[in-house]
Amino acid sequence: MADQATDAEAPFGPAGLFGPADLERRLRSGGVGPEDRAGIGEIKDEVLKHLDEHVAAFFEHLASFPEAQALLRRPDLMEEARRLERDHLVAMASGTYDRDYVEQRFRLGRLYNRAQLDVALFMGAFHAQMSSIGRRIMQRYAKDAVGGFARFSAFKKIAFVDLGIVVDAMMTEREGTIRRQQQAILELSTPALQVRERLLILPIIGLLDTFRAKQLTDGLLKAIRAHRAKVVVMDLTGVSTVDSKVANHLIQTVAAARLMGATVIVTGLSSDVAQSLVTLGVDLSRLNTIGDLQGGIEEAERILGPASPRIERRPAVG
């Protein structure tokens, strides 16, 4: 079972992210010294004796939060989570902190991400678990409160190092998700639609950044050649902000399209965008701008008009 889990999580590559030196550094940063390891050794049996109770404390804390239901309602995830939490405590108490230990922590972080468990909520549950352990230790060392506290402190140091690893795992995983989503958004590239012979419409929706603006220029010029476009209506209705960099890029796009023999009409600049561009002092006088998409298409029809037989047949107005 453990092997299976390792295979499934292989691409996560803890080895790549975490070397032995890194673990050493983390333990050092956490202030874990030899006396702490010794202290943990002394309370190991105490922790293991009430293992189920401590694991239960973790999930009891989660149970009261609606955000955690995604995890709690999934028996498969829960089973794995319980098993990993159990292994987690055993590993923490055992006193050997090696590569397997880190990988186990990564699996846990990954699992909580899959269950969309909030980092703050995880922290809360983790604390509940530590309290449960602390209570047992303090009970056992009731006559030697200072000694009990020292041992619990040692255990807590490891717990904090541990927390750092799990949270890093959750963050790394989350950043990966964000990267994948960004990629997906990029791939939904801006389409160039042919409305009639020689007329393209380029609806731009969402955030324009420099990278996307570059991609847009590229796509538009290729579309102009592919569709033999003479007029392009670039509709910015769906764009809520344009900064000076992007505005300059749009101006360049228009200039490049002109070099290829196409006229670009820009439509749908919202009043906010228009005002911010004016405030920024971007010179848009070289752009052919028209209020809305309809107006833009009408203007395009006017430019293309004489070539269209439909309009040629119209009697001349005397």
Binding site: T217, D218, L221, K222, I224, R225, R228, A229, K230, Q252, T253, A255, A256, A257, R258, L259, M260, G261, A262
Partner: peptide
């Protein structure tokens, strides 16, 4: 006529926009 997309981008980036000259596909 016939300025390629890559050439068009390069020209614009260099500021060589052939102002005042007619262009076509």
């Amino acid at each position: 006529v016939g300025i390629q997309p890559e050439v068009a981008i390069a020209l614009v980036e260099l500021g060589l926009t052939l102002d005042g000259i007619a262009t076509a596909l």
